[in-house]
Amino acid sequence: MKEEDCLLKFEIQGGEFLDSGESSAVIKEYLKKIGIPHPFIRRVLIATYEAEMNVVAHAEKGTLCFTIEGETVVVRVHDKGPGIPDIELAMQKGYSTATQEVRQMGFGAGMGLPNMKQNSDTLVINTEVGTGTEVIMEFTL
């Protein structure tokens, strides 16, 4: 997906816990306005919020791109960060590399990726250690 294809685009700063999560609020309003049913909105928001918090918790910075292709909502999150050395391990419920600071904010339960998988219809993770991670989630109406 090219950047200009985003209906909504957000910049995410690593470590910025106070301001984070704004994308979910904006996306919620957008989906409500176009009449999308609540249970579907909820799935999109949970997965999107977790993806954004992953960037905040682990990466230097990132972008979140939201778009709709036909009947499918696509959320693509791209970050500059450490990458994920072992995706299978990261997908395990309860596994987390979050710092104590992140845990004090209420995160680092090791449920982020499982939660994204649970709430999306397809989840694709492309990652390169030392460079960054790209997460593409699709939600079909």
Binding site: I46, Y49, F107, G108, A109, G110, M111, P114, Q118
Partner: peptide, 8 residues
């Protein structure tokens, strides 16, 4: 206490 648990 864990918000990811709440979300999940």
């Amino acid at each position: 206490d864990l918000l990811s648990d709440v979300l999940a």
